[in-house]
């Protein structure tokens, strides 16, 4: 990308910029303005080919997809590799300048070729990555694993349980309560997140709404007499796994004694727990 000048970057950015408010009222006529003259910048494609004419918005999409260059493919391959493996090949993912090369250029090139070969099929790109040997390697360090004997793999043994991002956490909560939370995402700072979980009332409020997912599990009790079934369904809903024997032993008395209220409290406790809030 180093080949283009600031003026050309501005023109390309003008496709994506929002119009700005005019201090004198209303909106400004342009979206971006040249620093030197203050004139409005006309949107224009980056010149991939000197002969390529300026194109309107719809030609932008065709230009991206025509396969004549690989910047779009590089971006997509890099981003999906980062999402799936946890580390981008080009990092920061937006910085594709020549001065910021990929940490494994040959791998990125191969992914880009695969993406182009399949006409930009994202599912096939994802399949390529998740069926690779690299993706199948365990990331958890520890004894008894094959990592120590595989010099290439030991660098992947860096698994760390991390807190969910605000967006991930919000969606995880929504998937449990079966309802949308307010638009504002949960706080990112960990202490503020804990206060949010404990005291915002949003999780409990979602669990109290008629017809929420946990209430649906409680309704199983109308047809199935075993609280163990409710407990299993609750764990599957919240943690995507069955309860361990120790958990069943600890929580079944609560369900037997408190019924739907106990189920709601346990759902809240599981969502406030470490496992729900972490990426493992």
């Amino acid at each position: 990308m180093d080949r283009w000048q600031q003026r050309e970057h501005l023109a390309f950015s003008a496709y994506f910029a929002d119009a700005r408010p005019n201090p004198e009222g209303g909106m400004m006529a342009g979206k971006l303005f040249l620093p030197g003259t203050g004139k409005a910048v006309q949107p224009a494609l980056l010149q991939l080919n000197p002969a390529a004419p300026l194109a309107p918005d719809d030609e932008l999409a065709w230009s991206i997809l025509d396969g004549g260059h690989d910047q779009f493919g590089r971006n997509v391959a890099n981003r999906f590799f980062g999402i799936l493996v946890g580390k981008h090949l080009v990092d920061a993912p937006d910085d594709h300048r020549l001065s910021n090369p990929a940490i494994h250029g040959a791998l990125l090139d191969a992914l880009v070729r695969e993406f182009g070969r399949t006409d930009g099929d994202l599912r096939k790109l994802i399949r390529t990555i998740v069926t690779s040997r690299v993706y199948a390697l365990a990331s958890q360090p520890g004894e008894g694993r094959a990592l120590a004997t595989d010099p290439a793999a030991r660098y992947l043994a860096r698994r760390e349980a991390r807190p969910l991002t605000p967006t991930q956490f919000k969606r995880a909560v929504e998937s449990v309560v079966g309802d949308e939370l307010p638009h504002e995402p949960p706080p990112e700072s960990p202490l503020a997140r804990q206060l949010y979980v404990l005291n915002s009332g949003l999780i409990q409020g979602g669990l109290a709404k008629p017809g929420n997912s946990v209430a649906a599990i409680a309704a199983i009790g109308d047809f199935v007499s075993e609280p163990a079934d409710q407990l299993r369904e609750l764990f599957r809903l919240v943690l995507s796994r069955d309860p361990r024997p120790s958990e069943a032993e600890a929580f079944l008395p609560t369900l037997q004694k408190q019924g739907a209220t106990g189920l709601g409290d346990l759902a809240f406790a599981l969502m406030a727990g470490r496992e729900f809030g972490s990426l493992r």
């Binding site: 706080p187 503020a192 206060l195 949010y196 404990l198 005291n199 915002s200 009332g201 409990q204 600890a250 929580f251 609560t254 409290d265 346990l266 809240f268 406790a269 599981l270 406030a272 727990g273 470490r274 496992e275």
Partner: peptide, 20 residues
């Protein structure tokens, strides 16, 4: 934000301790 303990949270705290 969220600095006042909610009654529901207080009720579920012992369960949360068990979960952890």
């Amino acid at each position: 934000r969220n600095m006042v303990a909610s009654p529901q949270a207080q009720r579920a705290l012992s369960l949360l301790q068990t979960v952890d």
